[in-house]
Design a protein around this nucleic acid. Structure first.
Lengths: 233, 233
DNA sequence: CGTCACTTTGAGCCCTCTCAAGGAGTGTGG
DNA sequence: CCACACTCCTTGAGAGGGCTCAAAGTGACG
């Protein structure tokens, strides 16, 4: 659970020479409830972090790509499940080894804290989405989020060709559980986005953004407007 | 945005002798978009952290009590609003001073990272709530969350007398915006909880938990069950 | 005692969910 | 190479939880 950034380099060498594990789609990397002994760095592919309730309801907490970290907890057991979405490779590192590394390198410690904070801020965005946005808006945000993620991963410019072709390696149900919707609603919302001319469905796992600005309008930028009610008296 | 813990002590002295600011209910401590120059420690009272979208929709991100920290960002401007719920007092510290403190004290740095991580984990719980739970369940979780917060703040035992009397200093709309509901739905859900005998409404800002275990059942403990679909082949 | 803000309750509607059927793509075996 | 099975996606119809609009109730304060 973490985000990729420029100063990742400080940790990346913690995974130098670390054993690489290969994962097939849907394969579980860490199971909720298992002892949290390792931390991981995604070398390639896409992983998915989720939490499942006792009645089977599942919330996908994030989709993670290259150079993201997973497996950190404050407790001694994982409280979430991590599994592969696409074929993936992850570097595995003992948690104790990683912790020691942070202790020895104050720079790394600080950079790691900063990274944790950025992830926290992403989670706040997600909370806003789940609490306030409609199905259509959530899907729009999701597409922009995938576009943004690819842009970051590739270090590409905002207007680079092909950037508006979005790959959706996960299933509709994965998307639904991420957005707090049902898979049918996700399907229908894709339909609506297409009807409105915002996207084109190339096939069920690829969409093309047809009207980026309109999609951004729909997603709605969270701005820094004043609170609705100011202090009185 | 942070949580109170035993090892807060490491930071608390960062606020020793710091100027104290008094806040009236609804008064704004930090406005979204303002330069992020200070960080705060809540000495007394309850604060509320929220984010408002361009169309006025507001998401309350958390309610914060004594010994919680607020005001941290990775950016140079606050991306959220913080305002008082009850009359409150906060200690104010320059962000640069706090950062320097962390740099000089590796122990503090580490403890702070741990704290950030715990907050992150709380946010993951919230994401599960907003994405998967019904209105009634969210309200049940909310009451248990308030009970838990008071228990932590007071260092009280789980069966201490009076612990089941929950104060609700915030408005119904604040609760609604926290839970991703409308204020009317919050009211009706309180009604349903009372009908079912789970709580008693003492007055509009106080409820008593009448059946703690049933309320916990309703809230539903997130367990570490296996994911719905395991890897095949 | 009137005003004002907040809460509660009611009625009707809409967005999303549920249940169900049909379609599309993929892999397997005949 | 085709038929079949299987999974996933789409679409439809109907139901329901939560939302919107509206009005009455409650408590605080001047």
């Amino acid at each position: 659970m973490s985000g990729p950034t420029a100063d990742n380099d400080i940790f990346l060498d913690a995974f130098d020479g670390a054993p690489i594990r290969e994962l097939a789609p849907r394969e579980v990397l860490v199971a909720a409830g298992a002892p949290a002994e390792q931390v991981f760095n995604i070398v390639d592919g896409m992983l998915m972090l989720s939490r499942t309730g006792s009645d089977g309801r599942r919330q996908v907490l994030s989709f993670l790509g290259r150079d993201n970290f997973v497996g950190f907890t404050t407790t001694d057991r994982y409280s979430f499940t991590v599994q592969a979405v696409t074929p993936a490779r992850v570097a595995c590192c003992l948690r104790t080894a990683f912790d020691q590394r942070l202790e020895r390198h104050p720079d790394a410690e600080r950079a790691f804290r900063q990274m944790t904070f950025r992830v926290l801020e992403d989670m706040l965005d997600m909370i806003y989405s789940l609490g306030q946005r409609t199905a259509l808006e959530r899907l729009a945000v999701f597409l922009l989020y995938l576009r943004h993620a690819r842009r970051l991963a590739g270090g590409i410019a905002d207007d680079a060709a092909g950037l508006d072709d979005i790959a959706l390696p996960m299933t509709r149900e994965d998307i639904a559980d991420f957005l707090g919707l049902q898979k049918e609603t996700v399907s229908r919302s894709f339909g609506q986005l297409e009807e409105r001319g915002l996207v084109r469905r190339l096939d069920s796992h690829r969409v093309q953004i047809a009207a980026l600005e309109s999609l951004r309008d729909l997603a709605g930028v969270v701005d820094f407007a004043a609170p609705r009610r100011l202090a009185r008296r």
